[in-house]
């Protein structure tokens, strides 16, 4: 019955995905526009890419943003994985209700409130705002997303594998490292990617927690976008779209291949 698309579904999908992709396609197409007038096509050119790459303010902001994203994603993944293990495996401990509340609350907290509250904390304890305060802010909300991703994988994980390792003489810690961790690795990897993108993407919280000399790329982009559409921003956006899209595509291909391999291995191991 579902071998082919029917007309209604095909129309819905065409219009739907057209709506999702057309705005981005326009940005990409007009980034190659020779004319400074953004809506009038003046021939193909890559000169705006050269303009962006020569713009030191953009490049510096990009470098800061990448460092914050890589650092905060790594910390958030460690904390998030730890927190997922705590939530799924640790049973009850004093303050567990408060803990699960604190893990889920940042997911629904409006960004303006998160940003405001962290800024007020940094002012209250008198820390100079900049690179580290943005990183701390990003770790805090990313670790909750990371925790959700890893938690859902850990819940479906077959614990008998770990029990088998324990029976064969593994300590709980090494059973976790040798059995559990490799199996949940794809989820940990996607948690890292999600945290990385969340950090790359964040404007509001970074604006609240940044200080002089730590302007991130979204902050820079935001102040340019407020002035209107320009071919430089089109070129910069296209580069960012390209990087993120290829990252996601590669990650999903790797993920699919790993899952298939895991499936094959499990099947091969089953008869024995």
């Amino acid at each position: 019955m579902n071998r082919r698309f029917n007309t209604f579904n095909l129309t819905a999908l065409t219009f739907g995905f057209g709506f999702l992709y057309l705005p981005l396609l326009l940005v990409i197409i007009f980034s190659f526009n020779d004319s400074r007038l953004v809506t009038v096509w003046g021939g193909f050119s890559t000169k705006w890419y050269a303009v962006v790459l020569a713009n030191e303010a953009y490049m510096e902001a990009a470098w800061i943003t990448l460092r914050i994203a890589a650092l905060s994603a790594s910390l958030a993944t460690v904390l998030g994985t730890l927190s997922a293990v705590v939530m799924v495996r640790m049973g009850s401990f004093p303050g567990r209700t408060l803990y699960s509340g604190m893990i889920y609350a940042p997911l629904v907290m409006p960004e303006v409130v998160t940003g405001l509250s962290l800024l007020l904390l940094f002012v209250a304890i008198g820390i100079d705002r900049g690179f580290w305060t943005i990183t701390i802010a990003h770790v805090t909300f990313s670790m909750c997303y990371a925790s959700v991703v890893v938690t859902s994988r850990l819940r479906t994980f077959d614990r008998s594998l770990e029990d088998a390792a324990r029976d064969l003489g593994c300590s709980p810690f090494s059973a976790f490292c040798q059995i559990t961790l490799p199996i949940i690795a794809p989820a940990v990897m996607s948690a890292w990617l999600l945290s990385f993108t969340l950090s790359l993407d964040d404007l509001v919280i970074a604006t609240f927690t940044s200080g002089p000399g730590s302007t991130t790329l979204p902050m820079k982009l935001y102040s340019s976008v407020r002035l209107g559409v320009s071919p430089e921003i089109n070129a910069l956006s296209t580069m960012l779209i390209g990087i993120v899209a290829s990252g996601v595509l590669i990650a999903s291909l790797v993920n699919r291949r790993q899952e298939r391999r895991l499936e094959n291995e499990t099947r091969a191991a089953a008869p024995a």
Partner: peptide, 29 residues
């Protein structure tokens, strides 16, 4: 299709809003 749906969600929020400025402004697309 699922991947295609999630892909624009991964690209910067700000860029997606910016794209609409070019479409909607009075001399826009």
């Amino acid at each position: 299709l699922l991947l295609l749906l999630i892909l624009p969600f991964w690209t910067s929020f700000l860029i997606r809003i910016y794209a609409w400025i070019g479409i909607l402004k009075s001399e826009g697309y």
